[in-house]
Design a protein around this nucleic acid. Sequence first.
RNA 1: CGGGACGUAGCGCAGCUUGGUAGCGCGCAUCGUUCGGGACGAUGAGGUCGCCGGUUCAAAUCCGGCCGUCCCGACCA
Length: 569
Amino acid sequence: MRWSQAFIPTLRDDPTDAEAASHRLLVRGGYMRQLMSGVYSLLPLGYRVRSKVITIIREELNAIGGQELLLPALHPREIWEQTGRAESMADILFTLSDLRGGDAILGPTHEEIFATVATELTSYKQLPQLWYQIQTKFRDEARPKSGLLRVREFTMKDSYSFDVDDAGLDQQFDRHFAAYTRIFERLGVTAVAVEASSGAMGGSDSIEFIVPSPAGEDDIAHCPACGYAANVERASSTIPSFHDEPGPDQPERFPTPGVHTIVDLEEFEGGASAERQIKTLVYVLDGEPTLVLLRGDHELHEQKLQDGTGAIDIRPGQPDEIRELLGADAGSLGAVGVTGPRILADLQLADRSNMVTGANLDDHHLRGVDVGRDIAVTEWLDLRTVAAGEGCPQCGEPLEVFRGIEAGHIFKLGTKFSKALGATVLNADGVPVPLVMGSYGIGVERNMAAAVEMNHDDTGIIWPVSIAPYEVVITAVKVDDEATMTVANRLYDDLNEAGIDVLIDDRNERPGVKFNDAELIGIPYRVTVGPRGLASDIVELADRCTGEKSELQIEAAAQELVRIVTRAR
RNA sequence: CGGGACGUAGCGCAGCUUGGUAGCGCGCAUCGUUCGGGACGAUGAGGUCGCCGGUUCAAAUCCGGCCGUCCCGACCA
């Protein structure tokens, strides 16, 4: 491509509304433009990167036996009602109606539709099957952000596996794990595999691939010693057990005027340290008020609450709901003697005694509470948020917590969707069994952004060769110098012929402008052709990643570049 | 959905307090001089001041409503 003919609208200034590095650089480098919140147009450079990402994904999926197909983005609402997700995912569904008055949904993911197609499978002999597509998803995110990292319309590679039993699913899951590992390697992003919550997907097991980055939105608990890694939505940890002094035979109520928080009670004369307090929260789970208990210094993780209870709709109770339920305001709540609502308690409260909690009477608390004796716990769950420094659940060494971008997610779905939609086959015994499904997703544009987050500097993007829009840029220093253009054009032709993606900067601009643009858009190799080098029969090679410069003999330049680029791919 | 900020030329911004001809830098076009790390001079083109309504002789500016965008939080694959 000749830069003079290309549409590469680079900007001198950073766009003000772009915070994340990938957002800022992709806009400034002329890769994309925003159309509306969370919706972007990919310009020629952006489209080239996207195509390369897709090619890599496609190659790796084909390598594990995936069959590519294409399903609609427009779905009838009824199918989504059959699995209950019209309701459970309602807040992110784009919905529309057609001329017949029917309701339609723009697909946010495709489990329902793949399962529908899979109803045509009839025998275990046809299994396993692995189908995938590379297709546009629509999710009406409450808060799109950070350019391509969190958008409302995006391309996803989603694959779905169908097996007759769990053993088959496990195999397909493991194959995807390996394929994903190769994909991220080839994309030039380091992704860490972590245990994750399945969220709205349901199913038994799921693994996220997380690219460490402060621009991400997921917190990962990681053990440097043994390699344990889990999203905090799911991570557990060990903490020292707490030794309780013996307490009274029954709880004692005492006045605590003005005490409304854990900290207040710690500082209150006759109060207790946070470790000795029981925090009582009121949540409404699918319309049902529920008490949630944790140790005073522990934070609830709502995803754990949702996963642990299977609730679809989950929210903190309103002040009036709390008062109606317990007869007191937040700050004086407790579960002692409460019998109506469900009481969910964090595991760390088990066997604790002589603790302090609210008395369900404003400005009063109870001391000497023995959890097992005094509170009618309905269910014990892991509800607390893991914190850095706590013990690894596998080896006990201190955990680290880091931020990252969810670059991919693979799920063992089980039979949730096949049962709901009637996708069954006959097994070897002639008995109809629901297909055992897995689903596996990678966000294409999100991975482009993740690659930029990981690979950039002050002057611009540093693309991995594998997904760079062009592998080589030839910078012709002086376009009205005949010798320069002869050499530059010949090199351009030779590289093109050798199958190298090459861009020649033949614009009539000053060299500084060209160098800066080349670095901004992040082409891995820049070859400078100009009178200065030509005088000694050389062109200059600059490596965008290392910053190193070297000289190439003109006659050997094309061959040498082909060798370098081919090796780096 | 809660909190905060912003909307004026392709991009980055000033002007608004105190109402009166819409400005600056970059970019763009033409010409000239330049040319190995974002040149210089000259001459130009380009704007329903987010939208609707109100006040006023007069609104980018004051008032009301709406829309849009970003950031923090909540939520989310």
